[in-house]
Design a binder for these strands. Structure first.
Lengths: 203, 203
DNA sequence: AAATTATTCAACAAGTTGTTGATTAAATAT
DNA sequence: ATATTTAATCAACAACTTGTTGAATAATTT
């Protein structure tokens, strides 16, 4: 691949990341991106069709770096059973906090998604706060709430984008099972012996 | 409040919802919204400052309707312990499937969030598929994956937007606890007696 | 019936978008 | 080292979007 292409694309990616940390994504124009990258505006269209395409490309770098590092340490253990792997995700986000804070907190349709999650979490928290003594909990209440809200959002969006292959009732039963009892029960009979062993002894 | 104001705002809300189901949100202009609502473009600016503001207003109606209905049935049980309540959420989304499919699947920054969740879910699924016999699982694998991915995303975003009040290690330990063992353990000592009773007998 | 106020309309400047064809510069291949 | 290929630049284009204006009109409230 022509050295100039690599160079140009990288400059555009870097420029967008820099801009995204400075001002709302929605207000960033192609002109600004190419100005920041010190390239001609027409050059942008030689490589990308839209801001979104550039953003997706820019972010792939980050994700790939993370998943490669996780792959290196998780061998035969599901990621959610490995504190090590989960920890690496949190460290990755911490390392790129400025970027992720913006990506997650920006307006637009992303806002809607986070609104749904926040709405669920806050609504849920409100009800539970009056009922339980949060000082006795081993996991802080907001984390439990967002755990639930995120699970609900993600299973919901999977469900609707896959043409609702189960009834709401079935989804509700499974959702409750996952949230209340966790995943460990699910594997008692389905995981290979060596794996459930690994899950139980990994920490 | 002047009847005209109510009428105009409702027409704008409805128009946006209609348009959002027809074409990508990013491509919808103020002009189109007011055309669809059969109002003058200047009228839009009398009521809303941006498309986002209108969208947020439009959606509040939907959420409020849902939470009101849930509040009516859940009295002293946390929502994630009530299959009834979870079921209502899924039914609500089913009833408005066309809208939610668009809201969740649209490009923009929302895409990024869903990409993160998908990326996590697909990555996780790939690793587990080789290890377990999914036919023996009581909850289908993709649902488990999205449950985990959503939990991770939401706790992560709560964490970063609240200035990372715990270390990555602490977050990882709590995340694993929630995913593997669920929330039921957490309440054994912290919930009022009547509530844990309700949780255990509600279904 | 009078006073208030929401909506309409046309017009505005400023800015964005995506594309064009010709020119210049850099990288690759021979 | 030179020739060939191809990427980047530049200026200019029409079409469109934005947010705002002030005056005219219509609906609502008091």
């Amino acid at each position: 691949m022509d050295r100039r292409i690599r160079r140009t694309r990288k400059m555009l990616c870097d420029a967008l990341i820099r801009l995204v940390m400075e001002k709302p994504y929605e207000t960033i124009t192609i002109q600004e991106i190419t100005d920041e990258a010190d390239l001609n505006r027409a050059t942008f269209y030689l490589h990308f069709g839209s801001r979104e395409e550039l953003l997706a490309t820019s972010l792939t770098t980050y994700y790939d770096d993370l998943t490669q590092r996780i792959s290196a340490i998780t061998e035969d253990v599901p990621i959610w059973a490995s504190t090590q792997a989960i920890q690496m995700v949190f460290e990755h986000v911490q390392d790129n906090a400025a970027l992720y804070r913006v990506l997650i907190g920006n307006p637009g349709l992303g806002m809607v998604i986070n609104q749904i999650i926040d709405y669920t979490a806050v609504y849920t928290q409100h009800g539970v706060e009056q009922l339980c003594d949060s000082s006795k909990m081993t996991v802080p209440l907001p984390i439990v709430m967002y755990h639930f809200a995120g699970s609900l959002y993600a299973t919901l969006s999977w469900w609707i984008q896959n043409d609702m292959p189960y009834t709401p009732e079935e989804m509700a039963v499974m959702g409750k099972e996952l949230c209340l009892n966790g995943t460990i029960d699910l594997f008692e009979n389905s995981l290979a012996e060596n794996v459930s062993l690994a899950v139980s002894k990994v920490n």
